[in-house]
């Protein structure tokens, strides 16, 4: 499963300008939380992070953790500075009007899991 499949399947909107081919971006696992400190502590490298936070700090977190992509749920739109920062840092920023629960549910159905079943990452 690659990021392009996910974008198509979930009908996600791409907020950041992406130059690279997203079908080569293969997320390792999924992670969800709206608490930045938890994400910092728990989201594994190359995971997709699902959150309804549209706060500017999410880009810093995504960059630090080298996440595969960030999906912002419930139609929350980050301000322009946040999107600009995402472009600068090469963070894939996606958006949907669906709530977190439904997005994760569909990703789960597509086969995306947490990093290690014994040590759930989120």
């Amino acid at each position: 499963m690659n990021l392009q499949d996910i974008i198509t399947k979930l009908d996600l909107k791409t907020l950041s300008s992406v130059e690279k081919d997203l079908s080569s971006n293969k997320p390792a696992c999924g992670y969800s939380s709206d608490l930045l400190s938890c994400v910092m502590a728990g989201a594994p490298k190359k995971s997709i992070w699902i959150t309804l936070q549209a706060h500017g700090n999410i880009i810093a977190v995504a960059t630090l953790l080298d996440l595969s992509a960030v999906i912002i749920t419930e139609g929350a739109i980050p301000d322009e500075t946040t999107i600009e920062k995402a472009n600068e840092e090469g963070v894939v920023l996606l958006s949907t009007s669906l709530p977190t629960y439904a997005v994760v549910g569909q990703l789960w159905e597509m086969g995306l899991r947490t990093s290690d079943p014994d040590q759930p990452c989120s």
Partner: peptide
Amino acid sequence: GYSTASDTVRELGFGA
């Protein structure tokens, strides 16, 4: 989406 809340308050689940 506009908020003046501190990060501490955000971590408590408010200030969104």
